[in-house]
Amino acid sequence: MIGRIGRKGISFVSELGELTIFGASSLGSLFRQRHTFEKLTRSIYEIGVRCIPITLIVGLFTGLVLGLQLYYVLTKFSSESLLGQAVALSIIMEIGPVFTAIMIVGQAGSALSAEIGIQRNAEQIDALQTMNINPLAFLVSPRLYAALICFPILTAFFDIVGIYGGHLTGVSMLGVDQGAYWSRIYEAVSVKNVMDGFYKALTFGLLTTVICAFQGYYTHVKASIPGARGVSQTTTRAVVLSSIAILSSDYLLTSLLLEK
């Protein structure tokens, strides 16, 4: 029993080390290749542009629900006028970065893991190595930098649409004063709050892209079954681990950022 826990612990620490080296090598290899701008643009399209619709839809409904929930809580304290402030701070500091990251993992992260996994099984990664092309630079690095660019931008989109969703519920449906809604937001939300949300988005972008790419890249050793089922296994694991990474790092970051 103790031996098993020990082996699991060693395996976890060892995988964490591999993941860190993988991430660092990918980050460092972008500018050691040709046609960097072209690859980066394509990755921004895949991760950023294609995730805009889902981010906007989820952002709007989150804002609508949050407006409704917070309104009923605040009426108990006769503080409905604080609705704008409550919705905005919740979304900007917490819900926006977390939900956006989870949405991007669901759409782009899973696709990234599956694509790299299939390329591994089809010997395309080996082919790159025999052509003396760095597979991390070619396959992972542009996606990693694209994620660092796209996560904060998509988070900003989520924040804007979410706050507008709260406005729709609170002001248009439940009769909260429009002036109070916007002025409270203006008074309560500082640049630091917005930047804290972006720091979280950057961290989530880095963590989730590295995890998804890592699972796909090593699908031949990480999956217990070879072939298509192995890719499906590592893709599922990539999404689960990314979600855990988002939530656990969110707790750590919130603790750190609130202390400042």
């Binding site: 290749q33 040709r34 046609h35 390329q119 089809a122 010997e123 395309q124 080996d126 082919a127 052509m131 003396n132 092309i133 070619f138």
Partner: peptide
């Protein structure tokens, strides 16, 4: 199994090593 890149056409597959290196 040839290890060709499915998302690149024949011309791009052949050009890949030269274009990248």
């Amino acid at each position: 199994q040839n290890a060709l890149f499915d998302s690149l056409n024949v011309f791009e597959n052949i050009a890949l090593p030269l274009r990248e290196k």
